[in-house]
């Protein structure tokens, strides 16, 4: 038995040593796997954004954009990365925000209108940013639409498929594990940016209550299932409120943002 154990340990050591040594090579970089994905993603992203601009009313307000950029830069913690990410605010009565290929995040003004604080909005943005950073968007599209179709879209820009991509990303949920990973990553981004992470579960709870009040669920709720469970998990991971938490936006800036995203009587129409 001793001989067999010894030989097994040698064999196992050989296996792990081979794996470890082969792992020293940066295959992802050498095989240009990231670049292929990024290039394709950027092409698809550009086509999608064109469609968003053509089909929706994009709020083009420089002051509003700079406030959203301020939140984004704080969450990214790196101005170079932040400059690659684009946040587009669209005039839509549906409470929703979603990530799109090519580092794009679309936020409906109705969602901003429903936030009680900049920390809640930062929580939503951190969650969407996590989907982008963790490559969830392309993964979801690869699984549901197919990589070959995505590559074809990148080269010929099929309008019908682009509309389908927007529909899938704006109104269907990510897998549970992806949502959970995005929540965890969002908490990390918020902590790093010294933004109160409680904003994320607070907003989820607020929308869950809103769901009970009105007919039909706000879109961001229907695309983010298991709200109560997620709120409990998020709260359990959040430590006590720290004095170091800051409001990225001043009170005046927040009021300005809210005023410019006021959707008035349409607020009731969440579908």
């Amino acid at each position: 038995m001793g001989k067999a154990t010894y030989q097994f340990l040698v064999l196992a050591a050989l296996f792990f040593a081979t794996w470890f040594l082969l792992g020293r090579v940066n295959y992802v970089k050498r095989l240009h796997l990231e670049q292929i994905n990024e290039k394709t993603e950027k092409k698809i992203g550009d086509l999608i954004i064109k469609t968003v601009y053509a089909q929706q009313t994009v709020i083009e307000n420089d002051s509003l954009s700079s406030l959203m950029d301020k939140l984004k830069t704080n969450l990214c913690g790196d101005s170079t990365e932040a400059s690659k990410i684009r946040i587009i605010v669209v005039d839509a009565a549906v409470v929703n925000a979603f990530s799109l290929p090519g580092n794009n995040i679309v936020v409906n003004n109705a969602l901003i209108a429903h936030c009680d604080s900049s920390a809640q909005l930062a929580g939503v943005l951190a969650h969407e940013l996590a989907h982008l950073r963790l490559h969830h968007v392309m993964k979801k599209l690869g699984n549901e639409i197919g990589i070959s179709i995505l590559l074809a879209v990148a080269s010929n820009g099929n309008a019908q498929v682009i509309r389908e991509i927007i529909r899938k990303l704006s109104s269907t949920a990510f897998e549970r594990e992806m949502e959970s990973d995005a929540d965890d990553a969002a908490l990390t981004y918020l902590e790093k940016a010294h933004i109160d992470p409680a904003g994320l579960p607070d907003f989820l709870e607020k929308l869950a209550e809103l769901k009970a009040d009105v007919h039909g669920a706000p879109e961001w709720i229907s695309t983010h299932p298991d709200i109560q469970k997620r709120v409990r998990t998020l709260r359990s991971k959040i430590q006590d409120h720290k004095a170091s938490y800051v409001n990225v936006l001043t009170e005046e800036e927040w009021i300005y943002l809210k005023d410019n995203c006021d959707i008035g009587p349409r607020a009731e129409d969440t579908n």
């Binding site: 792992g23 090579v25 940066n26 992802v28 969830h136 897998e175 594990e177």
Partner: peptide
Amino acid sequence: FGPKHITN
């Protein structure tokens, strides 16, 4: 099919 991606 899942959330993992290709790594070294």
